[in-house]
């Protein structure tokens, strides 16, 4: 990409409405304390920097203000999928309770991307 992002809530919107944070592949560690510094360093600093399909956090700042995970190709700039970050995070945490809490978002996401987002495996 990127020129147009198909926001699950707002439809296709141009890139200048968005703020881009970066790589969404890593999960924030859920442990702290002695011996976890390397894990945290890896989360905060180390990047796989994929040549090809990668997932990236985008924020629809000039629209619905939702964080999205944009899966796209870093060489061709093709966009494969746009998923609400909350759906993405929930599915990766494997928490089904959280997903149940937000049926509206899940539906919106599914409608817009035309694919099931609930059981996404880590890519």
């Amino acid at each position: 990409m990127a020129y147009l992002i198909n926001c699950p809530y707002c439809g296709p919107r141009t890139t200048d409405e968005f703020y881009i944070k970066g790589d969404a592949s890593k999960q924030r560690p859920d442990t702290i304390g002695d011996g976890t510094l390397d894990t945290w360093h890896d989360y905060v600093h180390i990047r796989e920097n994929v040549r090809g399909r990668m997932a990236e956090h985008w924020h629809h700042t000039g629209g619905c203000r939702q964080w999205l995970v944009v899966e796209r190709d870093t060489v061709s700039h093709e966009i494969y999928a746009v998923t609400p970050a909350s759906t993405w995070a929930t599915s990766r945490k494997g928490s089904s309770t959280a997903a149940r809490k937000k049926p509206a978002r899940k539906t919106a996401a599914r409608k817009a991307t035309g694919r099931k987002t609930g059981g996404r495996a880590k890519t």
Binding site: M1, A2, T15, D16, N49, R51, E56, R72, T74, H77
Partner: peptide
Amino acid sequence: IDGYNSYAQRGNLPMVEH
């Protein structure tokens, strides 16, 4: 920079305008 990860040696128009 355009702001997204990319290995393509090209960008897009919004950053040109900016």
